[in-house]
Design a binder for these strands. Sequence first.
DNA 1: CGCCATTGATTAACCGGTTAGTTAAAACTA
DNA 2: TAGTTTTAACTAACCGGTTAATCAATGGCG
Lengths: 244, 244
Amino acid sequence: MAKTLNPTSPDQARERILAAALREFSAHGLAGARTDTIAASAKVNKALLYYYFKNKESLYAAAFEEVIDRVMQNTLAVLDTQCTPGEHLLRLALNHFDRILTQHEFQSFMQQEMVRFHHGKSTAIPHLAGKAFAPLLKKIQQAVRQGIRSGELCNVDWMQVVYSSYGSNVFYFMSAPMMRLSLSVEPFDPAHIALRRKAAVQFLGNALFVDRTHGAKLVRRVLAAMPMPEVRNPPAWRRIYERP
Amino acid sequence: MAKTLNPTSPDQARERILAAALREFSAHGLAGARTDTIAASAKVNKALLYYYFKNKESLYAAAFEEVIDRVMQNTLAVLDTQCTPGEHLLRLALNHFDRILTQHEFQSFMQQEMVRFHHGKSTAIPHLAGKAFAPLLKKIQQAVRQGIRSGELCNVDWMQVVYSSYGSNVFYFMSAPMMRLSLSVEPFDPAHIALRRKAAVQFLGNALFVDRTHGAKLVRRVLAAMPMPEVRNPPAWRRIYERP
DNA sequence: CGCCATTGATTAACCGGTTAGTTAAAACTA
DNA sequence: TAGTTTTAACTAACCGGTTAATCAATGGCG
């Protein structure tokens, strides 16, 4: 098979399929995405999908695999920086915010899998839970515990740190269309995103630190150290808010 | 048509259909729910769905209508209690937690509609945004502003209060299956829910109040004033975690 | 080099199951 | 009997997946 080792790339088709699948699946979900649409979007005959992949579900898994790897790597890198437990927590929250910004497909994937798992249909969730989330949660738990012992952090429930940090970010993006209608803000205007991003860490800092002045200082430092990423290819990001 | 005004109830069929529809739609979504299943679950012939409702989507809208009303009423009631802005915010957060607990269908509906709205297919969201959410958000904004002016609350971003209060609750329920696998906790054990419920308000209090001791006192008061509701008909609540 | 066989890549056309929605008649009620 | 409620049976569309065939390199061989 020349699938994997053909340098003269006659199967860019496979790559196009994966890209198209990622687009469609992250926009419509596994059940909602149409194989015909994926094929058309990849400028390829539908049968070719089944030449390269066993079935729709395999394609779905393959399409998200690399995204998952990228996110995993990115998150763990945050924990490498040398800083206090409190700063680590701020960095994790900000990193999560930026991930949703730049890797929206992952967020979409996670939400879908969560629902699919409700129905006992997800194999990805159990895998991710053990391999990725459990270690990450352990790290967060340790950070909170250390921070509390050292007197840097308030005596907060460590799981609530997780729920608050991650939940507020997820909810922000989830409820954005609603907010646009309810208030008169444009939630995906970069300037507004930057404001929200800042507010998110500030609020977390306000909750976590015993000495709020110290917390505010760390927040400023973290914001300076982690500039807001460019939202790569805006069309891809906006795609889901426009009619096709 | 005896649809609306027949006291001698020969159309309990209609009620059974609505109840079944609510179950199926909240578990599987508009696209995922099967009309055959709804009919079977209501012990009714499928054609009867189309006798009482124009089509699947109308049934979907009708099924959620009453839930929406109930939730609306319940939320606004919280704002009637006479207390400080800070306590109002705590009560709203706790009320939201309890709503997810007792009216899970509404949460499910909101998430679905949010996604559907992404695709320009939801008519409910624009309606809810103007009629229900905008006023609620205004109230929260006022509460935060007043609280800051009076010196009760820190100078926090009012929208972040919304995102953090609501987001952490939503995320808790959304990620529960994941947490069960990653940690060794049973997230829907009532005892554990009670712990999380308490931690949620405590964390919020820790973030909001200038005087954390005062905040903690309010938190205790609110928790005492709003006991955790019974989770009515547990089977319905667990349903989505079991195979049919 | 020139011919053919092999093999990977790609496609058009089709299949069978599923599902939203319809119809026409039966059953019930007043 | 006249109107309403309920049903069994049917239809049309859609969609995931298959099949059988074509196209385009590659490589062996005389």
